[in-house]
């Protein structure tokens, strides 16, 4: 099963290696990982999506907590949370196909952010399901390339990750 971990870490050199190294060393597969800043100076946030059962993830969380630079790990999977991923899609766009693409972009509330004589770049944000669906539609026109961020998540409601359990 897919599980989502939010990890707050000290922003020190090598921290990403320590965290990702721990996953690979203990045989857990990272599906995607997103790293960015937080409102606290010196603290970064990683959102990691792993494919593993609950017991395995419990073990990962305990091992992560032992890393000296890790402040807080919480498994957001069973909590009520929102997650989004951003994807850029470069799609073939001959002039006669452009309006079809534009229609699809509007339906998915995506955005066209670059146009060239035979291609477009579309920006789309959403959860994994929406992105999958949108990609499927774009495949009809021919996808040349994609770039995506990996999932970032926050708990719903007023609680912060620091206040989350586990």
């Amino acid at each position: 099963m897919k599980r989502i971990l939010a990890i707050l870490v000290e922003d020190r050199p090598g921290v990403l290696t320590r965290v990702s190294g721990l996953f690979s060393r203990r045989g857990y597969n990272i599906q995607n990982i997103a790293v960015g800043r937080t409102i606290e100076p010196g603290i970064s946030r990683m959102t990691v999506t792993v494919e593993a059962d609950r017991l395995t993830v419990e073990q990962v969380v305990k091992q992560l907590n032992k890393l000296v630079n890790v402040l807080k790990v919480s498994d957001l999977t069973d909590e009520s949370s929102v997650g989004r991923e951003l994807m850029l899609i470069k799609v073939k766009a001959e002039p006669e196909k452009r309006s079809d693409i534009q229609q699809m972009v509007a339906t998915f509330r995506a955005k066209i952010i670059d146009v060239s004589p035979d291609s477009m770049i579309v920006e789309v944000t959403g959860d994994e399901g929406k992105l999958q669906a949108f990609m499927l539609m774009m495949q009809e026109f021919g996808i040349k390339e994609i770039a995506s961020t990996g999932n970032v998540s926050l708990l719903r409601g007023g609680r912060t990750t620091r206040e989350a359990r586990g």
């Binding site: 050199p13 090598g14 290696t17 320590r18 190294g21 060393r25 890393l67 000296v68």
Partner: peptide, 16 residues
């Protein structure tokens, strides 16, 4: 050596 010993130390440091 900090990279090499990452998985076999409790923690390690490179002083810069």
């Amino acid at each position: 050596i900090t990279g090499i010993t990452l998985p076999i130390t409790k923690h390690n440091y490179l002083i810069t």
